[in-house]
Design a protein around this nucleic acid. Structure first.
Lengths: 206, 206
DNA sequence: TAGATTGTTAATCGATTAACAATC
DNA sequence: TAGATTGTTAATCGATTAACAATC
């Protein structure tokens, strides 16, 4: 018996719900409603209730949702109730910014290893990390049991790096290189490319 | 008479088509087909043809699409046939990485100004830019006629910065701060938050 | 109790795909 | 001409919304 099939578009909204709820909790809030959450996110209340109902019953009629409880539940659903170690490939400007980024706190991730192929970068200290030689990447990642990686190399190297990462057992890739990457079934990839986001807005501007 | 209403989800795919086509052109290619483009992007050929047909007829039966011609046309549609100046607010690790980023070349954007509120950062050189005092942000952006901005401040400052940017005439915002931002009609916003992307993948991992 | 809000169903709306005539 | 591929239509599929009984 497999896990109930949930549309990926629903899965994609859960992290946004979680982020908003965590911010409410930081603000000392205890209870929220689908309506309030929807207003914050620009999503209809009905959709939030429908999305959550795919995974269980987390609210109380007449009252709403307990913020801490719903946070816990969504963290369990998304498997971020514990931290995932991350390998970063590419110690350029983006890779360095990620290695120093504090924003993964409480989000379920922590950078563990950073790699580069450039002799001048290998051995350098970036934040609390020392840049490792990417030629030993596969073994190092296997050894550490890391399952999630970020690619911050130039586009030309990205597919090759992805192939190696998959060989090393990586199951999820966040790709900052501006190129589409082919991956086998069972591996997941997401893209971050600021130009893509910007172009989506300039369409609406003159 | 207004411009024909195109679904935003279609607009959102055009930048991906453009990026793939530009890469093909770099590789010296002249012609492609909806099938080839679809395979590269993991999208059906029918969808690509349908999307493009919303804007005109760009292909030739039996032959396919001229890569340079289709690039030109999509650039016109997305309004990236010329470069947009960008203001970056926040000169921390992410803002600095963006200021040094070479990836906006040929994508329709160039960083023009970078701001921070921190006295220790103001006046510092980052790449080819000098960090400006964000207290003078509104006038500087108005003066320069900049319409697109990126927010790379901490979450606590993001909404306030967005409000100021809009006052300064900014129409499109790419927000790296991990928080939802409220904007008035006629202003567009996109979000980049690596944790959100990562959580969308860990759902599928054990 | 009265008011509020959930979880869920059915209806609506929109997006994707399959198929094919047109034609290069 | 034969083969290939577009642009478009109609059918299918999936996502969103509206509405409301249940109930806290």
């Amino acid at each position: 018996m497999t896990r109930k099939q949930i549309p990926d578009i629903v899965v994609g909204r859960l992290p946004m719900y979680l982020r908003s709820l965590q911010r409410m909790k930081q603000d000392g809030r205890q209870i929220t409603s689908s309506q309030e959450l929807g207003e914050r996110l620009g999503i209809s209340a009905a959709q939030i209730r429908k999305d959550l109902s795919q995974f269980g019953e987390f609210g109380k009629q007449g009252t709403g949702y307990s913020i801490p409880y719903l946070i816990d539940q969504i963290q369990l659903i998304l498997h971020v109730d514990h931290d995932w170690d991350i390998a970063v490939v590419g110690a350029g400007d983006i890779g360095s910014a990620i290695a120093r980024y504090k924003g993964f706190n409480n989000r379920g991730f922590r950078v563990k290893l950073i790699f580069d192929a450039d002799e001048n970068k290998i051995g350098q200290q970036i934040g609390e990390y020392v840049v490792q030689d990417s030629h030993h990447m596969v073994e190092a990642i296997q050894q550490a049991g890391i399952k999630v990686a970020m690619i911050t190399t130039p586009a030309a190297q990205a597919q090759g790096v992805a192939d190696q990462l998959i060989k090393a057992g990586i199951r999820g890739i966040l790709n900052y290189a501006p190129i589409s990457i082919n991956i086998p079934a069972g591996v997941y990839i997401q893209y971050i490319d600021p130009s893509i986001h910007l172009q989506r807005m300039t369409y609406y501007l003159e």
